[in-house]
Design a protein around this nucleic acid. Sequence first.
DNA 1: TGTGAAAATCATAGACG
DNA 2: CGTCTATGATTTTCACA
Lengths: 172, 172
Amino acid sequence: MFQNAQVPEQSFMNRKGSEMSVRIDALDRKILEQLQRDASQSLDDIAKQVGSSKTPVWNRIRKMREAGIIGQQTVLLDAEALGFEACFFVLIRTSEHEADWQAKFLKALRDRPEVQEAHRLAGDIDYILKVRVKNARAYDAFYQALISEVRVHNVTALLSMEEIKSTVALPL
Amino acid sequence: MFQNAQVPEQSFMNRKGSEMSVRIDALDRKILEQLQRDASQSLDDIAKQVGSSKTPVWNRIRKMREAGIIGQQTVLLDAEALGFEACFFVLIRTSEHEADWQAKFLKALRDRPEVQEAHRLAGDIDYILKVRVKNARAYDAFYQALISEVRVHNVTALLSMEEIKSTVALPL
DNA sequence: TGTGAAAATCATAGACG
DNA sequence: CGTCTATGATTTTCACA
């Protein structure tokens, strides 16, 4: 049993940057691990697994949801089974760094559902994208559409042959 | 209403490669979209949203689960709020391509929880990793550990400055 | 804060048209 | 196959220690 074992270890602001801060203790972390592993478990099961009981676990989950620590609850689909057989990592260099170019570029990425990830990078290469499409032709269509919308200096596409590992879990 | 609107569009084998094939129709696709968007919805809500009713939706979900199309149910956590402030994409070139080197390398990646993604690539660069860590020092520790375990020819780390977009949803 | 119970909702199964 | 009904689980709330 874990009666009141809070060792304050970390605090942070929520998304709105408000004063509200939430501390994450060892029990919270165990709960998060369980939720990451299987979000369909019942509260009772989670409580058992983390050595606590229903109500405290429920209150902590609610708090972490409100604080934005716990976000979307989703389901992972088998991409290949659904016909998404190509995955590209796209390295982008640009010479344009004005604000309105960047805004246009970001909007283009956010609007395209085949872009699963987009990061602005430090250094030589400016952006990296992860693009999941049905096949190479669909990638080409994406690529042509992108470069017709925004000017980019240099694009390198890396084609994934095999997904060795894929997880959304953080190593808490 | 969607009475029996099955337009067969796709079939595939399940994970064990058995004969069992499942066809995905427009209704299945809508259900998957809803589950991706919010897996905590009740069956009734999903049924309403896709224009069907409880039992058919439930049967389809069960079938797709059994077929492995629907996998893990999980929760997305706010990485920054939990202190994971650094994200690297790591490009790896190697000169070694023997089977046992590869097995060792794969095991090393699968054993390290900071590796969220690992792909074997076509072309010039052999592998790409996505590594999520608390800070640059933690990345260095990861890097040193990795190169001491397996020999690699060339490693380039790309540091993410900003996560512009991140989704696990497939564009069904 | 944790416990236990009450109330409301939901998932799951099965009979029927 | 879809509709409807039933019944156990589960979530969510709340009074009390």
